[in-house]
């Protein structure tokens, strides 16, 4: 039996880390979740045990104490695998725990293989054209971070979960104090959008055109890193490995080549329409509909057609 510890830092119903476990363990598992109350299930769940961190004692972002808490817990329970979501907190907590336990850490795993008992962690490498298989060396728990939403468990089996609050832990005085939290002026999240109009290097000079098509289709605009790096748009709308993982029903990729890192952000997208001057660009292999040609030309013509037809439609019904 393998013992797994999962740090919860997303919605309680997010089971993507449990999905990752399925891919790398082919025997029975005992699943322990650890996290703050708002991120953990409150009743019976897929977990055998849930350990709730007391937010009066250890504040989120106090990664020194969180790390000690997890390390102590590991020393008691000797987990085989410890998983973190690659959330903002997960990304600064996981490396600390890895050093405390003297084990390796692989970031943003996108696929997993069990190869003759060895777990291979897969992530994009360098150029965006290659994937790397990575193996952990040495003894001690296997650690990785996984982007939320990348994996989904196939079978969900409800267990009678033992929920415990972690009271015994004596934290050190915190060196980080939260002064205040302010909500940003509300900006829409590309992850919630059913349709995304996404632009890349091929529309760099005309990125503002995307907005027109987005309005007509009641969609949101997103971008590849090429556009974000050029400073035109905020990283908040970047799709991909260092951006967001999105699952819209329709993804219109305008002048995007489809590097590994970009495609990593496209999970469970129903339909991709790729508009590209090069119909052999990688993104075109993933698309249901490939439009060969200039993306701005495409936007203008399609927008005109949509506007014209909706006008006709109005006239007919009046």
């Amino acid at each position: 039996m393998k013992k797994i510890l999962i740090y919860c830092d997303t919605k309680p119903e997010d089971l993507s880390l449990v999905g990752a476990v399925e891919l790398m363990v082919d025997e029975e598992v005992s699943l322990t979740a650890i996290g703050y109350k708002e991120h953990c299930p409150s009743g019976n769940s897929v977990y055998d045990e849930i350990l709730l961190i007391d937010d009066q004692k250890v504040m989120p972002y106090d990664t020194m104490n969180l790390c000690d808490l997890i390390t102590e817990n590991h020393k008691e329970n000797k987990y085989d695998i410890i998983l973190f979501p690659s959330t903002q907190l997960g990304r600064i907590l996981a490396p600390r725990v890895a050093i405390a336990l003297h084990v390796g850490l692989v970031a943003d795993v996108t696929d997993l293989h069990l190869n003759h008992g060895i777990i291979e962690m897969i992530r994009p490498a360098y150029s965006g054209k290659l994937l790397a298989h990575i193996e952990a060396l040495g003894t001690g728990p296997l650690m990785m971070s996984v982007r939320p939403g990348v994996f989904q468990p196939k079978a969900v089996q409800l267990k009678s979960t033992n929920i415990r609050e972690l009271h015994g832990y004596q934290p050190k005085p915190s060196q980080i104090i939260l002064l205040q939290t302010r909500l940003k002026p509300s900006t829409e999240d590309i992850r919630d959008s059913k349709i995304l109009i996404s632009g890349g290097g091929g529309v760099l000079e005309h990125f503002d055109h995307l907005e027109e098509l987005a309005t007509l289709l009641n969609a949101q605009v997103s971008a590849s890193r090429r556009v974000v790096d050029s400073g035109l748009v905020s990283r908040r709308i970047q799709v991909g490995q260092s951006g967001k993982t999105v699952s819209p029903k329709l993804y219109i990729a305008l002048g995007i080549s489809g590097s590994v890192q970009h495609i990593e952000g496209l999970k469970n997208v129903e339909t991709i329409i790729a508009v590209n001057t090069n119909k052999n660009a990688p993104i075109c292999s993933l698309a249901t509909l490939v439009v060969e040609g200039d993306a701005v030309d495409f936007i203008d013509k399609l927008s005109t057609k949509i506007k014209k037809n909706s006008l006709n439609f109005k006239e007919e019904t009046q």
Partner: peptide, 29 residues
């Protein structure tokens, strides 16, 4: 190091059955 790259390879994409058009009138339609 505590991790090791075993191999790297180019990603093979599952080809979709797809429709190919251009930006002419028929394509936009």
């Amino acid at each position: 190091s505590k991790t090791k790259v075993i191999k790297t390879y180019a990603q093979t994409l599952n080809r979709q059955t797809k429709i190919e058009v251009t930006t002419d009138e028929a394509g936009i339609q």
